[in-house]
Design a binder for these strands. Sequence first.
RNA 1: GGGUCCGUAGCUCAGUCUGGCUAGAGCACCGGCCUUUUAAGCCGGGUGUCGCGGGUUCAAAUCCCGUCGGACCCGCCA
Length: 558
Amino acid sequence: MQRDKTSNSPKIQEDPHQAESAPPRQLFWADQKADEIIKRKRFRYLKKDIKKFDRYTIKTSASISGVLHIGRLSDTIRSESVVKALKDRGYDSDLIWVAEDMDPLRKIPEGVPQEYKKYLGTPVTDVPDPWGCHTSYAEHHVSKYLEVLNEFVSTDLTLFSMKEEYKKGNFKPYIKKILENLEDIKEIINKHRQNPLGRGWSPWTPICKGCGKIITPKVEGFENGKITYRCEDYKFEHQTAKGCGYEGENNPLKDYGKMMWKSEWAAQWARWEIVSEGAGKEYIVPSSAWWVNAEIAEKVLKFPMPVPIFYEHLMINGEKMSASVGNVVYPHQWLEIAPPVLLRFFYNKKLMKTRSFSFKDLPNLYDEYDRHARVYFGKEKIPNPKEENHMKRLYEISQSNTTEKPLKVSFSHAAMVSQIFTDENAKIQSLKRSGHYDRMLHNETLKRLEYAKRWAARYAPEESRISLDIDIKKIKQNLSKEQKAFLTRFSRWLEKPRTPEEIHNQIYSISKELGIPFKEAFKAIYLAVLGTKKGPKAATLIASLKQSWVIRRFNEVC
RNA sequence: GGGUCCGUAGCUCAGUCUGGCUAGAGCACCGGCCUUUUAAGCCGGGUGUCGCGGGUUCAAAUCCCGUCGGACCCGCCA
């Protein structure tokens, strides 16, 4: 099934700063990949020239069985960056997304009825939709997946489903070639195995005619183009997929089933003429599926190995993201506290460095992003031109259709302002006074205030939390006699409705009358209200609160 | 047994591929400034054996060899 999406394709914005000093060789990793893709001449395992590609297709795919967390967006986001780099060089390039929907159901996720145990080992495309809104379990998750992808990726994806591909027979020619060269395939795979593959081994996994499972058929032999199998129980992890005992035959060129991973991947590359694909760093090792498939692709299918985009996996608080640790970050959680572009920026940084995300450090990431924005727009200079170009490019390639101008308000400042003021107008007023407001970026500023507010409420560490809920006793001890006298006088005066100007003037007159330094008076106000020594303009802070509340609070701390 | 990546300031990271000015930034921190716009502002300060040891070089965070520490992978399956 190919579900083409039609919408405007992304335009990389022209940047006047880039034009004046185009560096001879790009430092940014996606540009290097693009150059490698364009310039490579020969096969890796054969003495053979690579034919010219009309267009450069990059593949990204996802298994449909697992949970969708932000870590799984990395492959697609990083692949997209290489597509962008190729397009920037004037080449036709597209990004295809393949649903690995022939994969078996491996566990029963939360929210799925326990009776689904009977589907363990069944291709997810053949499992019914537990929620009843799609034609299958796979369809349901694919649609969820795509909703998310379209939020985070700005390139149009061309969509494929492995189920549909097999059904349409698009893989037949490759299956045929692989079966014809069975001995070569085995030899390639055996090079990296301790125990050589047996006689009856087949690169094709049949699906049981009796129960429709893919994990349970045990291949007993492969002769004359036909696989004989018996459907048996299959144990994996903590689960057992029940076999049905069916004994039968399967013809890879006619019957239902799929290729094994070490063969199928190679066939996918050849079928879509893939020039590059992302893969986790575990594939770098010489005996991984990547290199096995690479050799199969070249030696058997005569298709050159794609340029790999190997990357490190995302960590959360320095730990692997996993449901059992309970540190899974879902895309919707990300979107509550940050825009998609920030995740793209994060993933577009150096690939092979372990990146750890933590909610606590989110302001850091925003600051880095803002700095890149300022450099991109020439508002900040970097002494090292190499570094400056790198920063500009990293920023540029992370953008979607429009290139965002740098905001004047930092995320942590936004967090503070949005915690103190509840009223949108008061927030903006505060930013205007402190020079953190840009009228041209009004909506963007509001958005950041929203993100920051949610972040502060849910994830901010104690020290960046500003709250009117303070330790009264402690403040009481910290305030001097003079400060208390000030607050008492002030609170009495506040019994009538006052304007911000009046409040402001009154702070000074009371201080003068009592003969205490203004500094101490302001400090007293901040301590009493926020528990801090500093704060936003005192008069507007008080004006933004209910006067009755202020009076009560001042009385409490005195 | 084999392989890959990472290690730079208290923290988060650039800079390493392509060796070249005194090793940088943000945050944090320290010191100072503000009597009618108290702004989480402004001014000043780098706090470092670039994990360690050797080599190459006129010159090494950067290249080579070794080593230590951390993360992970292959030798099941996908």
